[in-house]
Simulated scan of single mutants.
Amino acid sequence: MKKYMMFAISFIVLFLLFQVLSGLFLTLLYTPDIQEAWNSSASLSQETVIKSSRSPFLLTFILAFLSATIAYFIPKKMTKNSTH
């Protein structure tokens, strides 16, 4: 169980680090086209639609953590089955 906790904590830290670094990298490379945004703003709807109050990051994080957990236990299950 100690190995799993160490794996889980390191996975969470690395996942968050990569998310932040990729966000910074994408922000640095983004160059907005102000003229195009201004031209297309006239045809936008005046209504605001809120799709969801949940963050997509939370869902991504949960799925990544679940897949990492499953990936951690699969080799242990396979070695137990092959030795019997």
Rank of each mutant, 00 (worst) to 15 (best):
L26K: 06
T48K: 11
Q35E: 15
L66T: 07
G23S: 14
S53T: 04
S53R: 00
G23R: 13
L16W: 02
Q46I: 03
V13D: 05
I12K: 00
S41P: 00
I70H: 01
A71F: 14
I50F: 06
I70P: 02
L28D: 07
L44W: 11
S43D: 09
L17K: 05
M6C: 09
S82F: 14
H84G: 08
F15G: 00
Y30Q: 06
F11S: 07
I74Q: 08
G23K: 11
S22N: 04
S52M: 08
F61T: 02
F61H: 04
L63F: 01
A68T: 05
S82V: 15
Q46W: 09
Y72W: 15
I34R: 06
I12D: 00
T48M: 10
Y30A: 10
I62D: 04
E36K: 15
S67Y: 07
A71V: 05
L21M: 14
D33Y: 05
L16Y: 01
F7L: 01
S52Y: 13
K3D: 11
V20C: 04
R54S: 01
A42G: 01
I62K: 02
S22A: 10
P56W: 06
H84C: 06
T69M: 01
Y30V: 06
S55Q: 00
M5N: 08
F61I: 05
F18T: 11
F7Y: 13
M5D: 12
I9L: 14
V49Q: 12
L21T: 12
D33W: 07
A42W: 07
F18M: 15
M6S: 12
L24D: 08
N81V: 15
V20T: 08
V49R: 14
F73R: 00
M78H: 13
S41K: 08
K2D: 14
S43K: 14
L26C: 06
L21Y: 13
T79C: 04
L14P: 00
K76L: 15
F18P: 03
K3T: 10
L58S: 06
M6V: 14
